[in-house]
């Protein structure tokens, strides 16, 4: 009996392609590591030049060597949490509508429309924000100015929505049709099927969607810089949303262009970048752990 032999050059090609894929996969890890090392290299001098009590302080006046990071970190967290609080329910609801409820023709219109939103440049959204959203926020909330955290939150929520919707919708799409059939066979209503079967089954994908939405919101720079007022105040208290706020990203973008290379201010801006990097890393890690823990439970307990 003869086994078909694979021609040598195909074998070679196979090897080559396989190595190439391996290399690209490994390089993404490599790049993240390199970015991290670069941030550490440029940021650590600041830890020697600036006392820690200054860095954790509540005032950010870099021109006068006052480098309190607290208002910036809290500012970023405030707008991110606010944006996700709005875009998570809206985004998941929209993806459920598109994936489970909407008739085909509505779906065919909605999906590309949402993808177009994702393509709007952030500076354009900032422009709309400053011309339209900010005056509305001022008039309706009675805040002294329309350049507030809330304005940033609304626009960031809008920008995070397409990411959340698209990925959550993919996750819903990946739930096997047999799950739905089984639910209907047990005389579940459409709502019961969605809420108790489809949504739990799609949970890991939805968590991923939310995490990418968080990434979009925390990393967004231009829009926030244009509409959030950039005042480095401590965003504490109930009225924090109706007051201006300064985020880490806006700080880096506004100040990096002007600092002298190698100055203390320059190094501190890299510390800000490092904090931002670590924050997103922790968020992603938390998400990954959640998925892992849920994933091990296996199927079969959805209707419990």
């Amino acid at each position: 009996m003869r086994t078909p032999t694979i021609p040598r050059d195909v074998n070679w090609r196979e090897f080559f392609v396989e190595q190439l894929i391996r290399l690209t996969g490994a390089s993404s890890i490599g790049f993240v590591l390199l970015i991290f090392l670069f941030l550490i290299r440029e940021g650590t001098p600041a830890l020697f030049e600036v006392p820690l009590s200054n860095l954790v302080g509540q005032r950010w006046y870099p021109t006068f060597d006052i480098y309190g990071l607290a208002p910036l970190v809290l500012g970023s967290l405030l707008v991110t949490v606010g944006a996700i609080a709005i875009s998570l329910p809206l985004g998941v609801a929209t993806s459920l509508f598109i994936g489970e409820i909407a008739p085909d023709w509505v779906r065919e219109i909605l999906k590309p429309a949402i993808e177009i939103i994702a393509g709007i440049p952030s500076v354009v959204i900032g422009f709309v924000g400053i011309q339209v959203v900010s005056p509305l926020v001022r008039e309706f909330s009675g805040a002294p100015t329309g350049l507030t955290a809330l304005t940033g939150v609304l626009l960031l929520a809008y920008m995070a929505l397409p990411t959340i919707i698209s990925i959550a919708e993919d996750a819903l799409d990946a739930v096997p049709e047999s799950y739905r059939h089984a639910a209907y066979a047990l005389s579940a209503t459409q709502w019961q099927t969605i809420w108790r079967v489809v949504l739990p089954a799609a949970r890991p994908g939805i968590v991923t969607a939310v995490m990418l939405g968080v990434g979009r919101a925390i990393g967004e720079t231009m829009t926030v810089m244009m509409v959030a007022g950039n005042a480095a105040r401590m965003p504490l208290g109930l009225d924090a949303f109706l007051r201006p706020v300064r985020t880490m990203t806006a700080t880096i973008a506004a100040e990096m262009g002007e600092v002298a290379r190698g100055s203390t201010h320059y190094h501190v801006l890299f510390v800000v970048g490092l904090v931002l990097f670590l924050l997103t890393f922790v968020i992603n890690l938390a998400a990954a752990l959640t998925i892992f823990r849920r994933g091990r439970g296996g199927g079969g307990r959805f209707l419990a």
Binding site: L147, M226, N230, A232, P244, R246, A254
Partner: peptide
């Protein structure tokens, strides 16, 4: 120093607006 409440705006045009 400037009050921490001061809006730090990225350009002259945004201040004008």
């Amino acid at each position: 120093l400037f009050s921490p409440e001061a809006l730090l705006l990225p350009s002259s045009e945004v201040i004008g607006l």
